[in-house]
């Protein structure tokens, strides 16, 4: 595989990876399961699509092992839309990631939505030319993934639930962790890195910037324009919508409404207009009624 060896090459490549994540800011990334849905997403103004065989709410319902999508299905979506196409690999499954890179996928999501392939290790992402996005529940987890080379972070939330509560918890955990760092003296940062289990140099960089060194997006449970606006106001720079669109009653207008809600996330009058005349949102399941075993956010570390 054509992987970079020296530091300068790795950093130049990393700039391209984070650069694409920058381009996706202020947008909506939608889960799609076929070319037709991908077309609807692009038409609605999505900045990218996530190609997967089943939306998370169906993965949850069907059970069994959830794996990387069939390459043929991803290829068909790549041929249908002109926006970036992302796809998921199981946590730690670098061979699936190699296949997605060979397919020319634009972003790989190392995702807790699929059944983990490794209980101990995540993929070493600097080995790849394709950029990676990873989920996190708190600052330590975010910094560990960035240390491995993730070019974009997102909250884990609780995928396929339609319940926003976990995404809110994870976004607040990350921003609160960053605020703590900013209050610390330089000589306290190493101890904090030890507490969080976070790589020291990424933690110092985060403290200096006052934000994660890569774009920070929201995912997991977003179902309405108001959910999208909530996450943006809490500091998300873009939102992923998984089951929220194609498990709803009338996907096309809802897809467009969520895109508009991200553009006008801080304008209540516009948000009111945008939220009118939408069909039923996805039914969803409250996270606090789920068994711990059913929850996906606990996968990975």
């Amino acid at each position: 595989m054509d992987t970079p060896r020296d530091d300068k090459k790795i950093m130049e490549l990393y700039r391209h990876k984070v650069g694409l994540a920058e381009m996706l800011k202020g947008g909506v990334i939608m889960d799609v399961t076929n070319a037709e849905q991908a077309k609807i997403a692009e038409e609605a103004g999505a900045v990218a699509v996530m190609a997967l065989e089943r939306i998370p709410s169906d993965i949850r319902k069907d059970g069994g092992i959830a794996r990387m999508s069939q390459p043929g299905m991803i290829k068909e979506i790549q041929a249908t839309v002109s926006i970036p196409v992302m796809a998921k690999v199981r946590i730690g499954h670098f061979a699936e990631a190699q296949i997605l890179q060979a397919l020319g996928v634009d972003f790989v999501d190392e995702s807790e939505v699929l059944t983990p392939a490794d209980e101990k290790n995540h993929v070493y992402k600097h080995d790849f030319k394709v950029p990676f996005v990873c989920g996190c529940r708190n600052l330590g987890e975010a910094l560990r993934r960035i240390g491995e080379g993730a070019a974009m972070m997102r909250t884990k939330g609780e995928a396929g639930s339609g319940d926003i509560v976990e995404a809110v918890r994870h976004m607040r955990e990350v921003t609160e962790g960053i605020r703590r760092l900013q209050l610390m003296r330089t000589d306290e940062l190493m101890a904090e890195a030890k507490n969080l289990g976070a790589p020291y140099h990424v933690l110092v960089q985060t403290a200096e910037l006052g934000k994660l060194p890569v774009p920070n997006f929201a995912a997991g449970g977003i179902a309405t324009p108001a959910d999208a606006a909530l996450m943006m106001q809490l500091g998300a720079e873009t939102v992923f919508v998984g089951s929220g669109i194609f498990a709803s009653e009338d996907p096309a207008p809802r897809a467009k409404a969520v895109v508009d809600a991200v553009t006008y996330f801080d304008d209540p009058a516009k948000l009111m207009e945008i939220s009118m005349k939408l069909g039923e949102a996805m039914k969803g399941r409250a996270v606090n009624e789920m068994d711990d075993k059913e929850k996906m956010a606990g996968r990975g570390w």
Binding site: M23, L24, G45, A48
Partner: peptide, 15 residues
């Protein structure tokens, strides 16, 4: 700025 031109052109018309 840079971004997705499909999204940008649609939003320019919508707003």
């Amino acid at each position: 700025p840079g971004g997705e031109s499909t999204t940008l052109t649609r939003l320019v018309d919508r707003v």
